[in-house]
């Protein structure tokens, strides 16, 4: 009975407040709420910085370039279209580290049949391709790009860039065996990254290639 009375009275008070306009705001209550929420927010923020790992969803960039002697620049065009046993090709590759962490790269250059498919998940196996150079020939440790460096375009020098590297593409009878008499081939540039957990290189899924006729 007492409870019922109290509930009725409270309802009456609420009704009068709503009728008069907005309910009376208590600054002390609001201040307390603000302090409580800001403290909870600060604790969550600090904990996330301390305990959560850095988000490292970056990427790497691999480009294949040729040298334009007239303009003294490296350009992504004028690619050669044939190779022979007697004529070598000079090409340049460039790698940029946008991975948000220090990365140890290895570039593998492989010769394969033109009909060979290239996968993003698996590297070319050595049963259907030949390595042009030994594994250690092209290796580099790069610092990650800074925020400013990420916004720059067309840069070719910096400690996050594996500056255009001169590489000679060649063919010999040993390499030609893999082609099985075909008159065209594919030279694939695969980018590998070192994984400290397994202490070995892993295929990054990043590649580029040249299709050439062979005579």
């Amino acid at each position: 009975m007492v409870k019922n009375k109290m509930a009725k009275r409270n309802n009456k008070i609420d009704d009068t407040n709503t009728k008069k306009g907005l309910p009376k705001i208590n600054p002390k209550k609001i201040m307390t709420l603000v302090i409580v929420f800001s403290t909870i927010g600060a604790i969550i923020a600090i904990a996330s910085i301390v305990f959560l790992p850095n988000q490292q969803n970056g990427f790497s960039e691999l480009s294949l370039l040729t040298y334009n002697a007239a303009e003294e620049t490296y350009v992504a065009n004028n690619y050669p279209n044939q190779i022979s046993l007697s004529d070598n090709i000079t090409m340049f590759f460039m790698v940029k580290n946008f991975e948000n962490k220090i990365t140890y790269y290895q570039l593998q250059i492989k010769v394969t049949k033109i009909s060979q498919n290239i996968s993003l998940e698996h590297p070319l196996s050595l049963s259907n391709s030949n390595l042009l150079y030994s594994n250690e020939t092209y290796e580099k440790i790069l610092a990650p790009a800074t925020i400013n460096e990420k916004e720059e375009e067309g840069e070719q020098i910096g400690d996050y860039i594996w500056s255009p590297v001169n590489t000679t593409l060649f063919m010999n009878n040993t390499l030609a065996v893999i082609l099985g008499g075909d008159d065209s081939l594919k030279i694939v540039f695969e980018l590998w990254k070192y994984n400290s957990l397994i202490e070995d290189f892993q295929y990054s899924g990043i590649f580029t290639f040249l299709e050439l006729s062979f005579n």
Partner: peptide, 22 residues
């Protein structure tokens, strides 16, 4: 390399070290 990967703040000093490691 493992030690370098643990460094969070990659400042100028660390960048010099990365270059020396390379």
């Amino acid at each position: 390399l493992s030690m370098l990967e643990e460094i969070r703040d990659i400042n100028t000093e660390v960048r010099v070290i990365i270059s020396q490691t390379d």
